[in-house]
């Protein structure tokens, strides 16, 4: 078999071979702690960190909205964990909500929030609370602008809002220093358009990498004050809170996979250029 024949075969490579190689490249680095990752914190992530860091301890809470479903959990849960660690370490209170339409974001929050709170010994309903989910995101956002208690009369666990100490002073967005939405869909845009534009709330976003490009214009225009993008954003935040977690581990896999795809693109093009004359 000549080199050109080999290259021609490469052009019509069975996609299952690519899939198998990709599987290996994604799984192995996750468990091997290799290759090493040296993160440099981007301006967007630093801005988000600074905005959260500026919230006074034990005062009005950061609203953390789990607007994603399990499909995006690999990218966004590391962000949620890192941000919660930051808040709880600095005694910043956190009010969790979810506006993910099917309610699955609530399932994620119900697992993540108590777990990280236990790490820091933070008390439920005093230092943090999780209010559950509302299915119609835009309507819920507008309602919260008038009255949080109307939107969430009880928390996720059924406790009446009046019995939650954290909610005592929360009436509407006037008492909310910032909102961080973790999203992979247009919910992030709605946070900018409605609470951001209508009520002047400080909006921060944590987004899946594929969705970052959609939201960048809002960050550039100053309508979003800080932004975490994909696994990279999560890993950067983990670096800022000095607690490397699944975001940093995921970056290793991402690194190897990206280089593998680039290698395939280069090989594919070499094969294409070498065999172009023949196919003509």
């Amino acid at each position: 078999m000549t080199t050109v024949d080999l290259l021609q075969r490469l052009l019509v490579l069975d996609r299952r071979i690519i899939y198998a190689l990709l599987l290996v490249c994604a799984v192995v680095p996750f468990y091997m702690n290799w290759p090493p990752i040296k993160m440099e914190v981007s301006k967007e992530t630093q801005d988000a960190y600074d905005a959260i860091d500026a919230i006074p301890p034990d005062g009005n809470p950061l609203v953390l909205s789990f607007d994603y479903d399990p499909a995006s959990a690999a990218e966004l849960t590391p962000m949620a964990e890192a941000v919660l660690r930051h808040c709880f370490a600095k005694k910043i209170r956190v009010l969790g909500i979810s506006l993910q339409y099917s309610g699955q974001g609530a399932g994620i929050a119900a697992e993540v929030m108590p777990r990280i709170a236990r790490e820091f010994g933070r008390e439920q309903n005093v230092d943090w609370a999780f209010m559950g989910f509302q299915p119609n995101a835009v309507v819920a956002m507008l309602q919260m602008g008038e009255d949080f208690k109307k939107t969430f009369p009880t928390d996720y666990y059924g406790t009446a809002v009046d019995k939650i100490a954290l909610m005592e002073n929360i009436q509407n967005y006037d008492q909310v220093p910032a909102v961080l939405t973790l999203a992979g869909t247009a919910v992030a845009e709605s946070w900018v358009t409605y609470p951001g534009m209508r009520y002047g709330v400080t909006i921060l976003t944590g987004l899946t990498a594929v969705y970052v490009a959609d939201i960048v214009p809002f960050y550039q225009s100053g309508q979003i004050k800080g932004m975490l993008g994909g696994l990279k954003g999560a890993a950067e935040y983990e670096k800022l809170v000095a607690h490397p977690g699944s975001g940093t581990a995921g970056m290793r896999s991402q690194k190897v996979v990206h280089y593998m795809i680039i290698l395939f693109i280069i090989l594919g093009n070499i094969a294409y250029l070498a065999t172009r004359g023949r196919s003509r």
């Binding site: 690519i18 990709l22 994604a26 959990a73 690999a74 699955q104 594929v210 795809i261 395939f264």
Partner: peptide
């Protein structure tokens, strides 16, 4: 639900690789 859905989203990486190659 969580692993099943994450798996579906993870398929994107495979499709992305083959689409980029082509």
């Amino acid at each position: 639900l969580l692993p099943v859905q994450s798996t579906m989203f993870a398929l994107l990486a495979f499709y992305l690789a083959s689409a980029a190659f082509r």
